[in-house]
């Protein structure tokens, strides 16, 4: 049965320096509060996995928490570039960042393989692409039935997967609604799963085919309302597009970035204080 912990306790207990961490949410339900807590606890040398690094990994990379990034698309959706991500790759600031780059179809398949207990993923992928030349984890297999050559990549099995969801019930069953992304696979592939939620309710009262993660596949649940901000939680709040646009100027400039992290992350005790620190700021 999942434990109900504070986010501080969960990150402290399960996210160790050097660990392989996946934080998923496909533009929806991105676990920002958990990302902030990792920065606040000054975790180091993490391998970060995520299909779309987004602002959450821009912050973690810029704060020096990561030594390796495994990803398939690194941008600020609808806005432009991730400047901390770019600077880490282009000039190694604040610490060198190794990258392992895949495509979306592949990353999704790798999580599926991980969740299925299989050693590798197979897909009709990367035909004519240069990516396999620069990523030794993209190999190929020959289909034993047809002889077709297909792409093969290793399963993803993170030490810890962290996601954000709408609801948990008292037992720790999790309900995810709207764009469900790859979160189910990322949780089932991981050794430890931490889920932050908008609310903890008596009964989920979910439709019969809803996306449910039963309590016995979840390690810890943290009640963090608003914890996906500035991404959105379907049915709760919308994406904060203004924040995402303003991030461009903050992320572009080392000094601005550092003072933002100093004030809003290191300077706050938890996500509630973080939210208060944003009040009055555009």
């Amino acid at each position: 049965m999942a434990k109900i912990l504070t986010l501080k306790e969960a990150i402290n207990e399960y996210v160790n320096d050097g660990a392989v961490i996946s934080m998923e949410g496909f533009t929806h339900l991105i676990p920002f509060a958990a990302g902030h807590e990792i920065i606040r606890q000054r975790k180091k040398n993490l391998t970060l996995i995520r299909m779309t690094p987004d602002l959450i990994y821009d912050q973690l990379i810029g704060a020096g928490c990561a030594s390796k990034l495994i990803f398939s698309w690194g941008g600020n959706p609808g806005v432009g570039s991730l400047h901390r991500f770019r600077e880490a790759i282009q000039v190694g600031w604040p610490v060198p960042l190794k990258i392992e780059e895949h495509g979306h179809a592949d990353m999704a398949s790798r999580y599926q393989a991980g969740a299925s207990g299989l050693p590798f993923a197979v897909l009709r992928g990367y035909i004519g692409s240069d990516l396999p030349k620069f990523n030794s984890n993209i190999k190929s297999v020959v289909c034993p039935f047809t002889g077709e050559k297909l792409a093969a990549t290793p399963a993803i099995n993170p030490d810890v997967t962290i996601i954000h969801a709408q609801k948990a019930d008292k037992k720790g069953n999790i309900l995810i609604q709207g764009i469900v992304g790859v979160q189910k696979e990322a949780v089932l592939a991981a050794k430890v799963a931490i889920v932050t939620v908008e609310e903890i309710v008596e009964e989920l009262d979910a439709p019969i085919n809803a996306c449910i993660l039963p309590h016995w596949v979840v390690t810890a649940i943290c009640h963090v309302p608003g914890g996906a901000h500035p991404s959105y939680a379907h049915g709760y709040y919308e994406r904060d597009n203004v924040f995402c646009q303003n991030w461009d100027a903050i992320g572009r400039d080392r000094m601005k970035f550092q003072s933002w992290i100093e004030k809003h992350i290191y300077g706050t005790a938890d996500f509630n204080e973080f939210k208060k620190s944003l009040e009055g700021e555009v």
């Binding site: 533009t27 959706p77 609808g78 179809a105 999704a108 999580y111 709207g178 992304g181 790859v182 959105y232």
Partner: peptide, 25 residues
């Protein structure tokens, strides 16, 4: 127009919403 590929309005107006592994496979 959606700002991101996963805007909530895409889900609300879709005939169905499937997982990312399913859409690619």
């Amino acid at each position: 127009l959606p700002l991101s590929i996963g805007d909530g309005e895409l889900a609300e107006t879709a005939d169905t919403v499937v997982s990312v592994p399913e859409i690619f496979r």
